[in-house]
C-alpha cells in the first residue's frame, strides 16, 4: 500500500513525463492537455495549474484553452465513455430516441452525464463521420452502427454484467 504522499508524487510524475515529451513547448499546449486527459481521464485542476507554471503561462490562459475545446473535461469521466452521434445523418435517422433510451437506462437526469459509480459517461457528439451507418454510437473506441434503442441498451447491459462479474465496483 502506498501512502498518500507517495500516490500524490506519482500523480505528478505522469504530467512531468508528458511535459518532457513535448519539450515544455507552450505552443504545444493542446497536445499536452490531450496527453494529460488521456492519462488522468480528465483535466484535474491542480494538474492544469502545474502545467501552466511549467510552461510559463498564466493559469487563466490554460483554463481558457481547456474550457474552449469540446474534448476537454474538467470533471472525471466514466470508465466507459458512450458517444452518440448527433450529426445530420444520425439525427434524421433517429439519434434522439437513442439518447433518451440510454439516459433512462443509466438513470441520468437533468444535465448529468456521468453515472454516480463512474462507470459510464454519456455524451452526444456532432459527427463521427460514419454517416453511412447512421445512427452511430461509440463506446470508448468501439463503433456500433445502425444502432437502435434496444440494441444500444443491450450493449450497456452487457458491459454492466461484465463489470459486475469482476467484483464490486466501489
Amino acid at each position: 500500500m502506498t501512502t498518500t504522499v507517495g500516490s500524490e508524487a506519482r500523480r505528478f510524475e505522469a504530467v512531468l513525463s508528458i511535459l518532457d515529451r513535448y519539450e515544455r513547448d507552450s505552443t504545444r499546449l493542446i497536445p499536452i492537455l490531450q496527453a494529460v486527459q488521456e492519462e488522468y481521464r480528465y483535466l484535474p485542476e491542480e494538474i492544469l495549474t502545474y502545467v501552466a507554471v511549467a510552461l510559463d503561462l498564466s493559469p487563466a490562459k490554460v483554463y481558457g484553452v481547456a474550457t474552449f475545446y469540446g474534448h476537454f473535461s474538467l470533471e472525471a469521466k466514466g470508465k466507459y465513455v458512450v458517444k452518440v452521434c448527433d450529426g445530420t445523418a444520425c439525427h434524421v435517422k433517429g439519434s434522439g430516441p437513442l439518447v433518451e433510451a440510454l439516459r433512462k437506462e443509466l438513470g441520468l437526469e437533468g444535465k448529468r452525464k456521468t453515472t454516480a459509480d463512474l462507470l459510464f459517461t454519456l455524451e452526444t457528439v456532432s459527427c463521427l463521420g460514419a454517416c453511412g451507418l447512421a445512427p452511430v454510437m461509440v463506446v470508448n473506441e468501439e463503433v456500433h452502427g445502425l444502432a437502435t434503442p434496444e440494441a444500444a441498451v443491450a450493449i450497456l447491459r452487457e458491459i454492466k454484467a461484465r463489470e459486475g462479474g469482476k467484483g464490486e465496483t466501489k
Binding site: 507552450s26 497536445p31 490531450q34 484553452v65 475545446y69 457528439v125
Partner: peptide, 25 residues
C-alpha cells in the same frame, strides 16, 4: 500531425492557426 480538440470553428483558417499555436481557436 496534430489532433484537433473538438471545436468546429477551427476549420476556419485563422482559428486553426491559433489552435496550432496552443491557443483558443
Amino acid at each position: 500531425v496534430m489532433e484537433g480538440a473538438g471545436a468546429f470553428v477551427c476549420g476556419e483558417a485563422s482559428a486553426m492557426v491559433a489552435s496550432i499555436m496552443g491557443g483558443r481557436g
